[in-house]
Design a protein around this nucleic acid. Sequence first.
DNA 1: CGAAGAACATGACAAATATCATATTTTAAA
DNA 2: TTTAAAATATGATATTTGTCATGTTCTTCG
Lengths: 225, 225
Amino acid sequence: MGKCESCIIKEFNALKSLTRDELMRVSACKTGKIYKKGQVIFEEGETLNGVYCVRDGVCKLTKLSENGKDQVVKLVVKGGLLGKRSLVSEQKTNLSAVALNDMEMCFIPKSEIMNDLSKNPKFTMDVLREMAHDLKESDESLVNMAQKSVKCRMAEILMYIHDNFGTDDEGYLSIVLSREDYASIVGTATESAIRILSQFKKQGLISTSGKRIKIEDYTSLKWIE
Amino acid sequence: MGKCESCIIKEFNALKSLTRDELMRVSACKTGKIYKKGQVIFEEGETLNGVYCVRDGVCKLTKLSENGKDQVVKLVVKGGLLGKRSLVSEQKTNLSAVALNDMEMCFIPKSEIMNDLSKNPKFTMDVLREMAHDLKESDESLVNMAQKSVKCRMAEILMYIHDNFGTDDEGYLSIVLSREDYASIVGTATESAIRILSQFKKQGLISTSGKRIKIEDYTSLKWIE
DNA sequence: CGAAGAACATGACAAATATCATATTTTAAA
DNA sequence: TTTAAAATATGATATTTGTCATGTTCTTCG
């Protein structure tokens, strides 16, 4: 396992604001973790005693609704930090994290990172900025959920994945989700999600190959309401 | 206008973590502002050059959806701080703030508060904790919006207002909202909101007097799905 | 390879919600 | 006080979305 000081991943998150000294201390106490597709990283209500830094793979953050269905709140890829909110508020985590494909992560114990949080203002401000960003995104999702149709939300998540996580060499979305996951992201029944994707396919907006989805007509997707 | 050092309001927000010295400086440069019911405090996209501390009254934070409807994201009462996110991320505000009744606020210029943010770790951590709390609430709203029926969301906002903002001496919810505001909170058409409240009234779950609403059967409200 | 289970797909119908029309009541302004 | 405008209320209807049933395709594992 590499050293944090020379790890490129940290450039994508608040850890970049740690000093070389702090990074070396973090590096010394971090542990590497591997998760297989579908594996639970942590579950809502658990006490997290540290944060996870995503080195590779994708996971979903979900929250269980009272009706028993999981709602995906956020997708996290390389560079993402899991468990920030829980760390800062010193509460149990309010979200579950599940690997969507094979993942490689580093786990940094709470004690170490809390120390940096209290002593390095630059780092604290960076965490603050990340949290502010998450809050903004969450508010935007809230408005979309409240005001837009399921069809529109589905079009948007396809574009979101395309724009933020990219495509593979054949042009398919690089994040591959089950229909159930799509349903859980846009907040609808699995059958409805399937129906909408089928409709998009018939209209030539997307094409599929197994579970993989390729956006064929981005512009038209944008105009769905 | 009073002095921040001796202001009781600050106990409800992160300002309580400022030292006496810092508070005196804040006090010296703050300005008092009065807003009438319905008045816009700031609008989505504006550059805020400070934060607002709510001394009295209630306001709603809204975001304009692409369909042209406003969505209420949060209600803020005495003790709340407006403009935190914008300040921290140094971006234009992503929300609008509108007074729901007559309000009294203090405005603290950005320069002053940013200085404290960078030099007082206790204060920074407190802001961080507040932001973490907002994020958690926003995620919860998102799940509710995605997974629960309009009727259920309406019942929940009534209970939320009851629990968090209390009732007047006659037992009516102390925050008085228009039906349109209710619609904009639960994310539905105004007519649907009106219909649901009428239904609640017929079922004896609530009673009304003008716009004022009194919860008559809290337990039954809780069981709505 | 073949069977079993999971994921995907689609039809039929039910329920929830939006929209449009039109009263009625309340509020605010002249 | 009167009157116009806004907010509330409710019916009729259309649209969206959910649910249940059933069939098909894909995957996985013995």
